[in-house]
């Protein structure tokens, strides 16, 4: 574990000096917080939310049921806010994919991998170190951004009932359980792809495709095809956990010293 932690610290010292990575880690959360807050602010100022509340009878019953006793206006606000919460599930996938891609493919391009592999570090220790280096900042940034978004929402909408609903077990599980699992997924995918490509951008982009099923999930919810609740969220978390374990296993198997040294050019 100590060696893994040393790898993590080394990665942070090195990767965060890469401007591309730094931009993703700093600017993506800022954008993901500011865009929804500005939108909410404009909607509340323009009366759009009141209009939505006025036509609450036109909102699908499946969606209204998600409001769990909120008044018409609050329900409308909640339905808008949860669309933005999707961003906080995209972030933990995008950030670690960027870090992990640069961390592994970067070792290829700078030819630092061979001396590293020649040390008495196991593949598991090495990958764990690199994964922690990607997952920890991603999850931390996601949580901080989520808290900042909640605080901003309270300030703009002044509705604590709404916050109570956002801080329901389902959303807490999504942000504090599913988000880290998505992060691990992003890293595993980046590791797997990094062992096969030479360009960090390719390794970074492919894991990002995971956001497509995420968007699909929320679209299905919006159109009432599925209803997100705590039990569905628990199932998603469990399925993701299994996928993560399988992905980590495959990533470890793919990360073979001999292939990496002889095939990577």
């Amino acid at each position: 574990m100590n060696k893994s932690w040393q790898v993590t610290l080394k990665e942070w010292r090195e990767v965060f000096k890469n401007k591309m990575v730094l931009y993703v880690i700093v600017f993506m959360p800022i954008l993901f917080i500011l865009i929804p807050l500005i939108t909410l602010y404009q909607m509340s100022g323009s009366g759009a939310l009141s209009e939505m509340a006025g036509s609450a009878d036109q909102i699908p019953a499946e969606m209204v049921s998600m409001c769990e006793g909120l008044s018409g206006a609050a329900c409308a606000q909640y339905l808008v806010v949860i669309q933005f919460l999707l961003l906080f599930l995209i972030m933990p996938v995008m950030i670690p994919a960027t870090i992990a891609s640069y961390s592994i493919v970067g070792e290829k391009s700078t030819k630092t991998l061979e001396p590293l592999l020649a040390t008495p570090i196991t593949t598991i220790e090495l990958l764990l170190g690199k994964s922690m280096a990607a997952v920890i900042p991603a999850v931390t940034v996601t949580w901080i951004s989520f808290v900042a978004f909640i605080v901003g929402t309270i300030i703009i909408l002044g509705n604590t009932d709404l916050v109570t609903l956002i801080l329901s077990p389902m959303w807490l599980l999504l942000i504090f359980g599913v988000a880290p699992l998505l992060s691990v997924f992003g890293v595993s995918a980046a590791v797997m792809i990094s062992t096969r490509v030479n360009d960090p951008r390719v390794a970074e982009q492919i894991p990002s495709l995971v956001i497509i099923p995420l968007i699909g999930l929320f679209m299905a919810q919006t159109f009432g095809l599925i209803q997100m609740n705590l039990s569905v969220t628990i199932w998603i978390a469990l399925i993701l956990l299994v996928i993560d374990i399988v992905m980590l296993y495959i990533a470890t198997q793919l990360f073979q010293r001999e292939k990496i040294l002889t095939k990577w050019k």
Binding site: K3, Q6, K10, R13, N18, T110, E114, L116, P120
Partner: peptide, 23 residues
């Protein structure tokens, strides 16, 4: 190794400290 393979963004001291921890 054929290529020195040191981490360019780290100092000489940090590079060696990292490898010392692995060894």
């Amino acid at each position: 190794t054929e290529s020195p393979g040191m981490y360019d963004r780290l100092s000489a001291e940090r590079n060696l400290a990292f490898f010392a921890s692995l060894y």
